[in-house]
Design a binder for these strands. Sequence first.
DNA 1: GTGAAAGCGCTAACAT
DNA 2: ATGTTAGCGCTTTCAC
Lengths: 336, 336
Amino acid sequence: MTNIYEIAKKAEVSHMTVSRVFNNPDLVGKKTREKIISIANELGYRPSQIARSMRTKKTNYIGLVLPDILNPFFPEVVRGVDDYARRNKYNVILVNTDNDYEVQTSSMEVFINRGIDGVILGGIAGGKKDTELLNKMIKKDIPVVLIDRFIPSVNSSYVITDNVKAAYEATQYLVRLGHRKIGIVSSPQKIKIFHDRLLGYKKALEDNDIEFREEYVCEGEEVVESGYETFKKLLEKINGFTAIFSMSDFMSFGIYKYCKEKTISIPDDISIISMDDIFTSAHLNPPLTTMAQQKYEMGYNAAKILIDSIRKNKLPDKQLVLEAKLIERESCRKIG
Amino acid sequence: MTNIYEIAKKAEVSHMTVSRVFNNPDLVGKKTREKIISIANELGYRPSQIARSMRTKKTNYIGLVLPDILNPFFPEVVRGVDDYARRNKYNVILVNTDNDYEVQTSSMEVFINRGIDGVILGGIAGGKKDTELLNKMIKKDIPVVLIDRFIPSVNSSYVITDNVKAAYEATQYLVRLGHRKIGIVSSPQKIKIFHDRLLGYKKALEDNDIEFREEYVCEGEEVVESGYETFKKLLEKINGFTAIFSMSDFMSFGIYKYCKEKTISIPDDISIISMDDIFTSAHLNPPLTTMAQQKYEMGYNAAKILIDSIRKNKLPDKQLVLEAKLIERESCRKIG
DNA sequence: GTGAAAGCGCTAACAT
DNA sequence: ATGTTAGCGCTTTCAC
């Protein structure tokens, strides 16, 4: 590997002049500069980012920790993060935790050892350990931006969707279509954003003088199989729902599966609305009506906030709330 | 940031003894070792991976370059790569090229500057520029393992599916169901693996004494919209296909969309088989019959081959061919 | 506009 | 079992 000394020798200047050509070209005379550039090209010189990091304490790496890359929600987020990062000369270190808390924690350790400049953290659940981890990162002055989820008790930066509003609008939509008996296939309520979705649902019922009933809510995990099971349980408990608000498209896939098995027709027998608008929701039969989250923007803006804060050398504090948008397809029908 | 000198001072040993504790603990006396570890913990010491890389010329980073992270084929690959890498103390730098050749090339430059240990490269198309890029990497002694696709003229390491065989089996399956007029919705034939799929199809026809007809093949890009368009073109050209072999599930989604619009019933009017078995193919209506590729294994093994070769300090040369497996669902029916 | 010296934190190589 | 020396390739600082 050729280095600045080798070039310096050939160009008969000091290595510092070579260094300047690549960092502050204006400080070097035109002639010298051109000579050095020409020699550098000739020798195929490439500055060592490692040596640079060693001195500057900046690596131009950011970490991206995701709970489940198989959920089509996240690839779009990845795309947004990667696009912004690459255009700004940062690279993304991806870690998929598969919802394993151990992996999440140890990744942070690794990131610190690697001198990473900042972290985008998705899928934080909000338990005691999560809170501790987040506080620890803040205390160590490592910039963290949360995406998709956040922890109310920790004053961190995040990019999320307005979940209360999205759930409110989804429920309003169903009510407008004449539905009053609306079941909920819920993701874990201990996670704040899913709790917010329940809040939005409740508020919509209230505004329409419909009584909220605890037994209309059934809770599961945010995976396809659990959508199936949770929906099944809900139907076994209560009869005669005309509509369901599912908290994520991923779970709705399970609902569709169950309906197919039991020849329950969507939307003739039951209307379904959910949230996310992940890829292929449009390709279900019938195409799924859902509150689309701005996934690409979520990733893109998280990267922007993070990198801006790194450049300013201070912890990020921006909290961005994106709007969800109703995508009306064919899984809901008017009744009554 | 505390370093080995600080610890050495406190422990009244040389910095080398501290270094040894973290690299060759056996070479250090038990008592000294324990003392050093205790002080290190107390001070919250973490070895700087950057300084380490500076000396050893190893970063423990591998690059993963993918053409389209939105295609659900790739998240599974990512998961495989990430799992193997993490367990072996490597981290993955992800780049999504969106099929932009410029991004692919410049990523390699960045990787080289960053002193990355090796690269897993997906979605290489096989054109002149791709060939040059690959040869350049090999010449620079940077280990590269290709996944999903390969270039026959370059003697590189890769992990792919046996595409000839998979297409052969898919076609055989259709023939066994009584189909003889089988159309092809093809991905770009200039890419070797898709050409191989055509070869498999042809071979199956030949073995069953069915004449191959050029006009039964229609070519598009590997995205949903193109699946729609290509299928449409194919039907406009030729009438009366009883079955279609689609070269990827992604394109099949487009076929389903077209069929829905034109109320063509799958499998009553036409049978569809394809390749990949991406997530949600099982959730289409009817569930898609397809040749499942071993996506996780592809990623996992590519990472294994790459990291093995890095550790042995030689370029990877292993070429692994995985089998596809028929997943019989409901998009094909028996006729005649 | 250019250069000399020092040092980032670590490990390889060679001592003892 | 432990220590000494040198140096990885770069940038910061200060000097001219």
